[in-house]
Amino acid sequence: MLNISLMIIGYILSIMFVMSVIDKVSNWGVSVAKLEEYKLIPKKLSKFMNLLFILIETYLSVVFFIHWIPFYNVALYLFLMMVYTVAVLINIYRGNIFISCGCGGVLEKDRLSKSMVIRNISLMIIGTLLLAPGLNFVLLSFESIVSLLTAICIVLLYGSALKLKANMDLIIKLRKKIAIFED
């Protein structure tokens, strides 16, 4: 059971990074602009840093997908997540919260918040679970296929829940506006 749970975690992290990379590559200009909005690095380094983040995320998505989890891969993952989290914290402290997080994929948010920091810390803790001893993995085993499908369902469910929440907030606002005209 632990083995399957760890496989699912690895797949979720892999899918998370794949979706982020696809978003950042397909919307390169927007991704660079989001990075610049943080105002933490010189603008002339934005494209290079965006490319570096894309390369690291691509590497980590492969690593988590094939469950090649030596300590240095988890350390790279934790370092990347800490960089992202510290960038968010600095901008929250500055009051610069009305910018997109730049996460891409299902994790994308249009403003920075403390809940994003909590989410990132939770993802860091979850990622360290992959260092658990005894993770035996066979790429095309029944367990790995079921784990992959479960991870896909969890990510889709999370993304759908976020969209549903955003749509419900919009519906509530629209109902209030309509109620004004009905009275």
Rank of each mutant, 00 (worst) to 15 (best):
R94E: 05
S31W: 02
I99G: 09
L78F: 10
L80Q: 09
V117Y: 05
N96Y: 02
V86N: 12
L123I: 09
A87M: 10
V117L: 06
L131R: 08
K114E: 15
M116Y: 02
A132N: 13
N96E: 03
M124L: 02
L131P: 10
G29C: 09
F64T: 05
S61C: 08
V32A: 08
E57N: 05
N120H: 03
P42W: 11
Y93Q: 13
S61T: 00
F53M: 14
Y59K: 01
N136D: 12
Y38E: 06
A132T: 13
N27K: 14
N73A: 09
V74E: 00
I54S: 08
I41E: 10
P42N: 06
Y38C: 03
K47P: 04
L123N: 07
P70C: 03
G102S: 05
V32L: 05
R94D: 08
C103F: 06
Y59L: 07
V62Y: 07
L60M: 11
G29I: 03
K109P: 00
I99L: 04
Y84I: 13
S122A: 15
V106M: 07
M49E: 06
G105M: 04
F65T: 07
V106S: 10
L45A: 14
F71P: 05
L51H: 11
T128H: 09
V74I: 15
L35G: 14
I66D: 10
H67L: 09
C101F: 03
E36G: 00
I92H: 00
K39L: 12
A33L: 05
Y72L: 06
L76R: 01
I41P: 00
G104Q: 03
L112P: 00
I90P: 06
